[in-house]
């Protein structure tokens, strides 16, 4: 079983690297935003680290929601998908492969931001904090991958491209990822604890910086994750029922 998960992950990862549009898109925007808005305005290393975390969440969101969502929707439309169903494996190695691949792509997509932060902002991180941060990144990929899977199982590819992007920016903005996450407008301040993007950022701050964080937002991230897991399971079964019953 685990060797099949490995085989599926390998193949999907190769596909992503050979046509790296998703990876480049996921890495480019956070890096560009970081260069444009964060690097010129760095006042102190702690602020720089906080802003870096926000851009990492941005990269994770983009990979999970947009990248995975579009991928799954497109794959469902190709004859390769039903073909894989005829192999003696069942659907789980493929889904596990998708999740592991999206995690790996998320880690790759955040590298430019982390490198820029290290070079230009004076932000520093001890090795244990870095490790802790990487673990937190893996955890926060989960809710956003679930959004991507949900969109991908529910919608045709063309709709998935639009819907994932339409959802992406409000979630990012209302979570306070754009602009200064530590001094937000009042409206966003009020709404953001209920957004999964905010919970992800607070969790990452807690892991990386060890600062006092908003536990309501982190709790809401847990709630989001459970709700999204149920919604994704429903969308998956619905898709299976339509195509394979």
């Amino acid at each position: 079983m685990s060797s099949l998960v490995l085989a599926h992950t390998r193949v999907q990862f190769i596909e992503q690297l050979r046509v790296p549009i998703g990876l480049v898109a996921g890495a480019f925007f956070p890096a560009a935003a970081f260069l444009a808005f964060v690097v010129p305005n760095v006042s102190d290393p702690a602020f720089a680290l906080g802003a870096t975390c926000a851009m990492v969440v941005f990269a994770v969101m983009s990979t999970g929601m947009i990248g995975l969502g579009i991928n799954v929707a497109q794959d469902r439309e190709l004859p390769w998908d039903p073909y894989l169903r005829t192999l003696p494996a069942g659907p789980y190695p493929r889904i596990a492969g998708r999740v592991l691949t999206a995690m790996a792509i998320s880690l790759l997509a955040m590298i430019p931001v982390v490198v820029l932060a290290a070079l230009f902002t004076g932000a520093t991180l001890s090795p244990p904090r870095l490790l802790f941060g990487l673990l937190a990144v893996l955890v926060i990929t989960i809710p956003f991958m679930l959004i991507g899977l949900f969109i991908g199982f529910l919608l045709p590819a063309k709709a998935a491209i639009g819907v994932s992007q339409i959802l992406f920016f409000p979630i990012a903005i209302l979570g306070g990822l754009l602009g200064n996450p530590m001094a937000m407008p009042a409206f966003i301040e009020a709404v953001s604890p209920y957004m999964p993007s905010r919970g992800a950022l607070e969790l990452l701050w807690w892991a990386v910086m060890g600062i006092e964080v908003n536990w309501l937002a982190i709790g809401m991230l847990g709630v989001w994750t459970v709700v999204l897991a149920l919604a994704t399971a429903w969308a998956y079964r619905r898709d299976e029922g339509r195509r394979f019953s």
Partner: peptide, 25 residues
């Protein structure tokens, strides 16, 4: 089973695709 005509993943190499499918058996 054979996938339908346009069904193969274009970015994989032929050898990788054969290995991947063979891994299931």
């Amino acid at each position: 089973v054979t996938p339908q005509e346009t069904g193969l993943p274009t970015s994989l190499k032929v050898g990788e695709t054969l290995d991947f499918v063979a891994r299931h058996y």
